[in-house]
Simulated assay, not measured.
Amino acid sequence: MTLQTAIPCTFMRGGTSRGPYFHRGDLPESREDAGRVLLAVMGSPDARQINGLGGATTLTSKTVMVSKAAPGEKQQVDYLFAQVSVDKDFVDWGPTCGNMLAGIGPFAIEEGLVPAEDGETKVLIRAVNTGALIEAVVQTPGGRVTYDGDAAIAGVPGTAAPIVLNFADAVGGATGRLMPTGNPMDHIEGVDVTCLDVAMPVVIARARDLGKTARESAKELDADRDFMARIERIRRAAGLAMGMGDVAGKVMPKFAMVAEPAGGAGVAARYFTPLATHEAMAVTGGICIASACKLPGTVAAGIAVVNAEAREMVTLEHPTGVMEAVITTGTAEDGSATILGGGTLRTARRIMKGEVYIPAAVWPGK
């Protein structure tokens, strides 16, 4: 009798996150059944995730499923993301992850889903969770993926080959609107906030209005329980105002706070996942915060140091360094400023390829 089910997977680092990458067809069709499998894969619910692949943090309890796009679709591959709770029996299918996204292009090429070109290969990806289209530019000298290079990103030791991620239709993926409340600024739970939906819906506040500086470490912020409880109250109220319903227990929208930059350009930012401080900066969240810096009337507009050019790099200072985002702005039909696209640079690395085993009682396999 087979007591365990073997599932093919590739374990990869994508940006500042890591986790198993699967072919969608190797997992159960229904998300409910797939969720049970992913909980078993990661070893959840358990604070240490000792019985699975999870790393006991939200950044290392992420899973990815990839499939070749259907004939006639614009994209080449579909990317389905699932955030597996560390200590709860819960899998969130709502958000996407821009860091894990960095590994999709290399995975798709390595697995034969997309043919490699000599020099660099562009992979058009649809984020199934949000419907966004993203172009990943992967280094493929000689028609093979290379992971070695001189690109460095904060939060990851060493250097690697650059992977450029371009979000062409990032606006309104979760709510259908750039500003889901209809306003560049709202007053929620006694605090001015900007509710923005670019690549990821984020509720953004000024750090000083929360009694903070946006210079604190992730550990310092997480230890301030009153502060964490306060921003969660704001996030939940903002979720209702954004038309997202009761967001308790869900990871969207995210929360962020901003302050004047220490380095003289860009903005200082702290990003929450949402019940813990991100140790670096999420790609999608960073693009949203950078977009707020470029839009008039937001809480970030009067703080960030950027110029008014249509396409400009915005530097985000986070707990372990900086992230740079390129934001393309334009004018909407009503004459208001809007976001046309955003992009950033990430790296990825293939760590392991093989099979992960789960109890057959969870799923006997196909």
Rank of each mutant, 00 (worst) to 15 (best):
G52A: 09
Q76F: 08
N51R: 14
M100F: 11
V86W: 01
F90Q: 08
F81W: 06
A56N: 13
S67C: 10
Q76T: 01
I50E: 10
A102K: 00
G72Q: 12
Y79G: 00
G54M: 03
G54I: 02
S67K: 14
S67H: 10
P95M: 09
K68P: 09
L59E: 09
L53Y: 00
E73N: 13
D46S: 11
A69V: 12
G103C: 10
D78E: 13
M65K: 08
S85H: 14
K74W: 00
K62P: 05
P95E: 01
A70I: 07
F81N: 07
G72Y: 09
S67F: 00
T58E: 09
K68Q: 13
N99E: 13
A82T: 07
V77F: 01
C97K: 12
A47I: 09
M65G: 03
A70W: 03
T60V: 02
D78Y: 06
L59S: 13
G94Y: 10
N99Y: 13
A56Y: 00
K88Y: 09
F90N: 06
Q75T: 08
T57G: 03
V66S: 06
A82P: 00
P45H: 03
K88R: 15
T57C: 06
D78I: 05
C97P: 10
A69H: 11
V66Q: 06
F90I: 04
Q76R: 05
A82R: 00
D87W: 02
D46R: 06
T60H: 11
T57H: 11
V91K: 02
N99A: 08
D87I: 02
A56E: 06
P71S: 10
V84T: 07
S61A: 15
T57K: 11
Q49S: 08
K74T: 14
G72T: 14
V64Q: 13
G52L: 03
G103S: 15
